[in-house]
């Protein structure tokens, strides 16, 4: 606490300050290790005292996360972390709240809560680890598993059409939507920090590898060669480019539909320059993931401002107190019709 300003100045942390004393119990080789490391590394840069940070999770492999962070943490119920985080923010708007979830926790059992925390724009940072499979229950298909995929519970192929987490988040009105990859620590750090600084609900899909039940599900963005043609780095104010250095590909918009072109074939200025404050652009870009003709966008797709739920409520409260003073129960009890019996 600085004497002069009264504002807490966080100590100079290192990654180590955010490592808890608990044994990490994920399978060896799990993508969650890299995510944990990246998040621990990005914490010192947030400039927030460690005691003011809370990690809340639901159930699943990803949801063990809070135990491994040396912050306040709460491992709750399957799918319900967004609801618990909302209540925490209502009670304690001074805290920085993260929600850690997975594709099953966040999009299946907790799909409803995810909708509402995003549309209300509660100030929480939501990290959804998407490995397209149920890991902790040992290998059933999840809501993001590809159609036709054979898993333990779909020996003849999944009949479910998968949900695209990004179009889901955009569709329910999220104000910050991004994607990153567990194999890219630097990019994860950058995205997590940007999400954490966003005012309102920030949604980050982290493509994550389950090396036991769905190994290399995201190989298109892992494999050095495949990645060149399949990973599309999204950067605000820059054209959407991918492909080999000597033969770059880019996206152009034909009407409302994106199209892949060879950069050298189109006029300068014809390329789609990305604007992360444009919700229409974000929807179009997010949809690419569902189409194998297109690369997989990675980066910040949307970053806009909107009223923050708990701030609106607290403003109403402040106004009520300013107008009529803090409530008094004795006064309340005797308000309205009363009568005295001697």
């Amino acid at each position: 606490m600085s004497e002069a300003t009264g504002v807490k100045e966080p100590p100079r942390y290192t990654k180590k300050d955010f490592e808890s004393d608990q044994d990490v119990r994920w399978c060896p080789g799990c993508g969650d290790y890299a995510i944990l490391s990246a998040i621990q590394k990005s914490m010192p840069d947030l400039g927030i005292p460690r005691e003011d940070i809370v990690f809340i999770s639901g159930i699943g492999c990803s949801s063990r996360f809070p135990y491994y962070m040396n912050t306040y943490g709460f491992h709750t119920i399957h799918g319900r972390a967004p609801a618990i985080a909302t209540g925490l923010r209502l009670a304690r708007p001074d805290l920085k709240v993260f929600v850690v979830t997975g594709d099953g926790d966040g999009l299946s059992i907790g799909g409803n809560h995810l909708i509402h925390v995003l549309r209300r724009n509660v100030n929480v940072t939501i990290l959804l680890f998407n490995n397209k499979v149920y890991g902790l229950t040992k290998g059933q298909y999840s809501p993001t598993t590809e159609f036709g995929k054979m898993t333990k519970s779909t020996p003849f192929g999944s009949a479910d059409r998968p949900v695209n987490p990004l179009t889901f988040a955009l569709g329910v009105g999220a104000t910050f939507v991004a994607r990153t990859v567990d194999r890219n620590v630097a990019h994860m750090e950058e995205i997590v920090k940007r999400a954490a600084h966003h005012k309102g609900a920030a949604f980050v899909e982290i493509l994550q590898n389950c090396n036991v039940y769905n190994d290399l599900a995201w190989n298109a963005v892992y494999d050095r060669e495949l990645k060149v043609m399949h990973e599309l780095r999204v950067q605000h104010g820059k054209p959407l480019l991918f492909g080999p250095i000597d033969d770059r590909r880019g996206l152009v918009l034909e009407g409302s539909k994106p199209k892949v072109v060879r950069v050298k074939d189109v006029a300068e200025g014809a390329l789609w320059v990305y604007d992360e404050t444009d919700p229409w652009a974000a929807q179009a870009l997010a949809l690419l993931t569902s189409d194998p003709e297109f690369p997989i966008p990675v980066g910040v797709l949307l970053n806009v401002e909107a009223p923050v739920y708990e701030e609106v409520l607290i403003d109403q409260e402040k106004k009520a107190v300013a107008d009529r003073g803090v409530g008094d129960v004795a006064e309340l009890l005797t308000s309205g019709d009363t009568w005295r019996i001697p």
Binding site: I56, I84, L88, E317, A320
Partner: peptide, 23 residues
């Protein structure tokens, strides 16, 4: 609101109890 009670109309019964656990 003058009594500093924050009311939250949750999306379902489960979220309602979840929110108060968070609080």
């Amino acid at each position: 609101k003058r009594f500093r009670v924050r009311t939250f109309q949750a999306e379902d019964e489960i979220a309602a109890v979840g929110s108060v656990i968070g609080a």
